[in-house]
Design a binder for these strands. Structure first.
Lengths: 371, 371
DNA sequence: TTGTAGGCGTTATCAA
DNA sequence: TTGATAACGCCTACAA
């Protein structure tokens, strides 16, 4: 106690960052004022619990001593809350600002955070690293996991925290609230559209199916065992649709790309055309990949849709601008729903599920197959 | 102590979220194992300080008890670090994902965060609210303030925290590292370009100049006293350029918009044309506003640049796509530099300053004035 | 290799 | 209206 008082009294300059002096604490402030710590604490947290003049005196002295208010960590330790929610993407942090779908999802999250006045912590969780320390030591009141594979160690670390959690677009963890779409139904619409147009020989580009970087053709077993549910369901829906139309699925080339970029889509399309030069349509499981495919076709002087039709998935802005035939999903809404589930205390402990609607978008990139 | 041991021993189910049982702590784990807290702590933080088998036993018991590892808040309180940096924008959080420049800046920040393995906390700081609590209680190791007015209470709260801080594009606080561009020089290039083309009657659209929502014409005094330095410098550069060319600045209408959106730009352009139907060029202090102006002109069936020239500022993607004449600034790099300054411990306490280069971009939206 | 003990800065509880 | 006391859960010299 006395040492605190000593410190508090030491030096009286008003530098913003008191150099060489030990930073003021609630206790040192109290000592300086000759009141108890409780009183100082109340001055900040319960203004009605002390007289206005005493409070004014406390605040003024705080200013003079350069005391910035109660220490956030100490407060959090005590109150068990931080006022922030954590987000995990399945990628580098910068992906959050580079991928259109991620950007939209996060916009949705922040829309609700703004309302609630909570912060949003982007938690580093590189899928190619096993280091979950950042997850274990994130100072948050809850987590949103976006598009993570079901075997991701970071996800496991999140669940271990036993905090309120919501997952979006990915693994259905028992008891954990989830937001998503009906991937199968949406993909079947795409397939049906192409089948109706008369396409029989198609190629598929999908996003990563596992945590290991792997770029190339995907066999059936890998399709079925994909750790990314979304991709698995979409591929499964395609298979069902084509087989129902009497087309052997194992004759249809499926190519995987780890990176979710336009360039990756372009290279995948190239690979697909190498695998089956006679295909008349390319189905991508995301708009970004589809845009890449279009770029590759353009480079090869193939016309879309006259020579090859292309479909996407997501409904991102640039895809709609490019008149891509795709499925539009309300990504911003998914973010909002996720945040609401997280911020609304669940009455029971039962899993809540929100499925947002999707819309088939007929663009100008699909047409009858060439002869 | 004994009560901890009691708790630790209570119940032994392996539910992920031990219901009704007090959550395990480092101490309860130690008690359960019959070792000291130090040992358990070391098992997590200094694996080399204890035998592999003991460590394995600790970790296994932790798993069994559902202990998720050291509590982040407690750890932070003790170590005085959190592994996250905070960002303040001058807007709602969702702005971070809606405004192209903000998105790019944050991408730059996260690029460096990824390298360093630190998280990024978006701190709510609504400019129209005075509530600074989120800033005061943000669990971060440092702050980046992006584009804040010099009289913003949130900024004041940031400085009060006495943590490492970097500001970007805005107030030059003594002793605080800063990243920016030469706004004046860049804007003079724009002005010179238009003057050379022969424009004499122009109108200006600028972003908000103060924290109070205000949409409309801006008089000289407000221009000079703007709390947003960037805007002030840009307007000042315009004024200097035009006056040097013998054009009376007070005859040039300047219109301000609080919201930074395309719609705001459009309405501002409309207002400008009302103020001076004879103007031959519209200068916007941002690309977003310029794109809005173009939209307004299009609605009015005015051709760009035949009827009216338009210039922007920033070099965002959609502006470059639209062939806007503008100034390109490396926003992603600004983010990177800001993060680097923050994460690199400054040797001295002197202010460091990084000025990134800009490039004049001649687009297709400027031409000689109509007769 | 392991244990002891003090303190990080705050808030909650209860009493005055 | 104010104050004393006890946690909150952990890290880290220092000692053994």
């Amino acid at each position: 106690m006395e040492s605190a008082a000593l410190w508090a009294g030491y030096g009286s300059a008003m530098e913003r960052t008191p150099r060489g002096r030990r930073p003021a604490t609630l206790a040192s402030l109290a000592a300086e004022l000759g009141v108890s710590r409780t009183t100082v604490s109340n001055a900040y947290n319960r203004p009605d619990q002390l007289s206005p003049q005493l409070r004014a005196r406390v605040l003024e002295t705080a200013q003079r001593l350069g005391y910035p208010g109660p220490d956030p960590m100490a407060r959090s330790l005590r109150t068990r809350r931080t006022g922030a929610v954590g987000v995990l993407l399945t990628e580098q942090l910068s992906y959050a600002f580079r991928d259109p779908a991620a950007v939209n999802f996060l916009e949705g999250l922040t829309l609700e955070c703004d309302k609630a006045g909570t912060g949003l912590l982007l938690v580093p969780a590189n899928p190619e690293a096993e280091d979950v320390a950042a997850v274990s030591s994130a100072a948050v009141d809850g987590f949103v996991a976006f598009s993570m594979p079901d075997d991701d160690p970071h996800l496991k670390a999140v669940l271990a925290r036993a905090l309120p959690t919501v997952v979006c677009d990915q693994p259905d963890v028992p008891g954990v609230d989830i937001v998503g779409i009906d991937d199968g139904a949406a993909m079947r619409e795409i397939a049906q559209h192409l089948l109706t147009l008369g396409h029989r020989r198609v190629g598929v580009i999908c996003m990563r199916l596992g945590r290991i970087r792997l770029d190339g053709p995907v066999d059936l077993s890998r399709q079925e065992s994909a750790h990314y549910h979304v991709q698995r369901h979409r591929l499964r829906a395609l298979r069902d649709s084509f087989e129902a139309a009497g087309i052997a699925w194992d004759r249809i080339p499926v190519v995987e790309r780890f990176d979710h970029t336009i360039e990756a889509g372009a290279s995948a399309a190239g690979e697909l055309l190498g695998l089956d030069p006679g295909l008349t349509a390319i189905i991508a499981t995301s708009d970004v990949l589809a845009l890449g495919a279009m770029r590759a076709l353009e480079r090869r002087r193939q016309r879309v849709p006259e020579d090859v039709s292309v479909t996407g998935f997501d409904g991102i802005r640039s895809a709609l601008d490019a008149k891509l035939t795709t499925v539009d999903q309300p990504v911003v809404d998914k973010g909002r729903h996720a945040a609401r589930l997280l911020l609304d205390p669940s009455p029971s402990s039962r899993q809540r599920r929100v499925t947002v609607p999707t819309t088939f978008v007929l663009g100008a990139t699909t047409g009858p197959p060439r002869l």
